[in-house]
């Protein structure tokens, strides 16, 4: 916990609103986080809780009808909220890069790997083609693609999903970004490949000394790579803190519910059935009333119906948003 940390991205109270026919949809209801150089922040939550929109909001790539607002989005000590599209385009791909969920469709089918890798370098760094090619070959080697030079002439359809995701990672690194946002980068891949890609990401992040935001619903991934964890539910942060703190003493019922869904070495006894979190994420149209999680929470009481939530701060940055005492929330863990 040194104060010397080089903060790359500092977000305060980020909201995304989308007008729909039924009213205003609030997929992201005000979340805050920061991530420093060399640090990995994992944003966790189930489908539909606003994770992907959060990442698109940071990149300025939200759908046209979506509205973004925040108290501040400081990226490299500059508030990027009021940047024009043209100025954002100078940050994207250079200072902040993104890796998407779907490697199968995220590459343009009509252009070769070299073309797609080199164009981002040629646009932002230098117009020297030989240099761009050299960088592409270097990075393909870095992401573990053997015989990189022969891969350069290939088209995306000639590569497997795992290879395509490696190419996407190399593409994100072409200009040496300060921040890399990976939105469920392993969801579409085979389980055996998932671990490789994840390991690769963690390695590269340390290697290139980047800040990384990893968005996932897989807590197994989080446990392996995260420095900080942010658990999102229905567009809100329900718990955040250092990785060990959140895993060892989950304070929000949702977090402990999620943790019951995965086997934890040393904690889950052999043969013991894994848990589930019953129910689905609530409708996100309209204003917030009470705790969004109450209808799925086994500890819910009348208090949860009406009172707005506020975060309870503990030491070392661990915080949670629940009316119930930490003891009540973790009671069922038997911890």
């Amino acid at each position: 916990m040194s104060a010397e940390k080089d903060i790359v991205l500092d977000v305060q109270n980020l909201k995304v609103d989308i007008p729909v026919s039924a009213g205003m949809l609030h997929p992201v209801r005000g979340i805050s986080f920061s991530v420093a150089r060399g640090e990995t922040l994992c944003i966790v939550g189930e489908s539909g809780c606003g994770k992907s929109l959060t990442s698109l909001a940071l990149m300025g790539l939200l759908p046209k009808n979506a509205q973004r607002s925040a108290d501040r989005i400081n990226f490299l000590d500059q508030d990027i909220q009021n940047l024009k599209e043209r100025e954002m385009a100078r940050l994207r791909g250079v200072k902040m890069a993104m890796i998407f969920q779907e490697p199968m469709t995220s590459l343009n089918p009509s252009y070769t790997i070299s073309n797609q890798l080199e164009e981002v370098y040629l646009r932002h760094i230098s117009s020297n083609r030989a240099e761009a090619r050299e960088r592409a070959i270097f990075l393909l080697g870095k992401v573990g693609i053997s015989s990189a030079e022969s891969r350069l002439g290939q088209y995306p359809h000639q590569l497997s999903g795992g290879l395509r995701q490696r190419v996407m990672i190399a593409m994100a690194l072409m200009c040496g970004p300060d921040l890399i946002i990976a939105d469920e980068p392993t969801t579409a891949l085979d389980v055996t490949i998932q671990a490789q890609i994840l390991h690769l990401l963690a390695e590269l992040q340390a290697d290139f000394d980047m800040a990384m935001i990893l968005i996932t619903h897989d807590l197994g991934i989080v446990a392996r790579v995260a420095d900080k964890v942010q658990v999102m539910y229905a567009g809100l942060t329900v718990e955040e803190g250092p990785c060990e703190a959140v895993f060892d003493t989950p304070l929000h019922p949702y977090t402990s519910g999620l943790l019951r869904c995965i086997p934890v070495p040393g904690k889950t006894a052999p043969g013991q059935p894994l848990g589930t979190v019953p129910g689905i994420v609530p409708n996100m149209v309209g204003e917030l009333q009470g705790c969004m999680f109450r209808n799925r929470c086994e500890h819910a009481t009348d208090v949860c119906e009406t009172l707005p939530n506020s975060a309870t701060q503990l030491a070392n940055g661990h915080a949670f948003t629940c009316r119930l005492s930490p003891d009540a929330a973790t009671r069922s863990e038997g911890a």
Partner: peptide
């Protein structure tokens, strides 16, 4: 609306390049 156009925009390419090189060609 395809994923690779989102990728092209995420790469910070100019709108002209995104439109003509990445979209129109396909």
């Amino acid at each position: 609306g395809s994923d690779y156009i989102r990728t092209a925009r995420a790469k910070g390419l100019s709108p002209t390049v995104v439109l003509f090189k990445h979209a129109l060609r396909n």
